[in-house]
Structures are given as C-alpha cells and as structure tokens.
Amino acid sequence: MKEIVIISGKGGTGKTSVTASLAYLANKDVIVADCDVDAADMHLLMKPVNDRKEDFFSGVLPIIDQNKCIKCGKCANVCRWDAIPIIDNKYIVQPIDCEGCGYCARVCPADAISMNEQNVGDWIISDVKTNTKMVHARLGIGAENSGKLVAKVKNEAKVLAEKLNKDFIIVDGSPGIGCPVVSSLSGANLVVLVTEPSVAGIHDVKRVYELVKKFGIKAGCIINKADINTDKVLEIHQFLEAEDIQLIAEIPYDENFTKAMTMGQTIVEFDPDGIGRILMNSWEKIKKIA
C-alpha cells in the first residue's frame, strides 16, 4: 500500500482539484484523506455520506472557577492575548482569543483556574461517490489544524486501507510548510507537487520542496495553468531538472475547472476528453513512480 501526498506550498494552485481528480480516477482502489483541514473542500467534490464521526480533542483551555476566584486580576494581567476580560464583574476566558499557554493557571494564587482539553471538532469517515471511503475532519470556529489532527486522519486512512485491501492512499496535504505539512509528509511514499507559473507559486514550491528533501521522499510535479507565463514555466523546468523531480504533467489554464467545481464535479467528470485526459495520463504515471 502506497501513500501519495499532494502538496503545493502556495494556495490556489489547484491542489485540491488535482487531488480530487486523481481520487476520482483511482476510484475504489484508494482511500482518500483530506488533511487540508483548515480550509477543507474535498467534500464538495467527493460528496461524502454516511458520516461516522468522532470528537477530536486538541490543546487546552483554561476555565475559571468563579467560586474560588478572588478577582485579583493576575490572570488577566499576564495574558498576552488579552483573552480574559471582565464581564459582569467576573473574569471570563474568551476561547477564541486564548492560545492555551496556561500562564493564567500558573499565576493564579487562589488555584481557581483549571486547564481542560478542548473538543475542537470531529474527524470523520464517510462513504464517497467513488465507491470508497474518505477520512476527513471538520474543525470548530477558530480551531486550527495541527500535526496531531493530520496524523490522526492519516492513521485512520491507513487502517482502512489495510482493512479494505486498497493499493493507495491519496492525501490532500496542507498548504504552507508548517507542522501540519510535516505531519502530512511523514510516512509518505510519493509527493506530488502542484504548482503554477507565478512568482509566488515558484517561491513556495521551492520552499516546500526543501522540506520534502529532508524527508527523502520521491517527488513529481504537475504544473497547473502552464500557459499563463511561459518564462516562469521554464524557470520551473530548470528547478525540476536541478532537483531531479519528474515532471508529471502540464495543465493549461481552463475555466472548466471553475465550472466543474460549481457543479460539485471533478474536472475529470466535467471534461473527460480535455483536461480529464491529461489527468488520466498523470494518474498512470503517478502509479508507476509511487
């Protein structure tokens, strides 16, 4: 069983559109994992049903026991995020402002503050329209993705893939290069970099590739919107050659991407003979190099 992670560094390069298309093409051979939890949108294209949800706990939140509180205000004074205002003559922690550092609980002379694990959302296993299962997550307002959550989603996907005898796990990775991306990459067999020929696109794909290199994972690259700037495409080619990254495909800019999305379809369903064909070839290549 191989784990294929799709990342981009920069947002808006078409990472999720490509991931969902690959998942559509691979159909029942794969388990899909959406680890881009901060702005999850695979579900829009994969149409999950029969959700099996479980609470996800992460981080801690202070709770002030109002019976013990002596209203000295020390907690509010030390709070760097001003997360403990006085409301109706009581010190109340504002969950959205709080970072969970625990300084307030440490300085409280009355021992009135306890730190409690936070239920920040759910992780979910669903049936999707491609005759397989998808593991994803839904975070509450103000909650953030973490290496922990990504590890959880990927672990569940792995367990399912083993149980159901699937050949692949396709992971929609997180943007950026931070902790969730590190966790997305950890344990992967192949990384597919989706980039675009723009200054930011190239900058960010190079930056995230630095991380991929540290993990020593094989990488391939899909250049999306490849006809919008030929100079920048050449620059990407040079980068790929220098780093020995296989170019999997170049996809032209196409408004069908947007049209497909508004209909809740992958581009492969919407335009099987155009862009769909390019992605079909891409999936065949990816299977070979994984």
Binding site: L185, L211, K214
Partner: peptide
C-alpha cells in the same frame, strides 16, 4: 522510514547520530 523533518533534523544532527531512511 523518512524524515526527520526540519526542526527534528536540527536536533538529530546536533547529537551526531547517523540517519538511515
């Protein structure tokens, strides 16, 4: 298998441990 990533790699390098992936 693979890794360690950025920050962990910095620690591992400091300890002089050889890494095989």
């Amino acid at each position: 298998g693979n890794g360690p990533g950025g920050n962990a790699a910095a620690v591992v390098t400091q300890t002089g441990t050889k890494v095989f992936v």
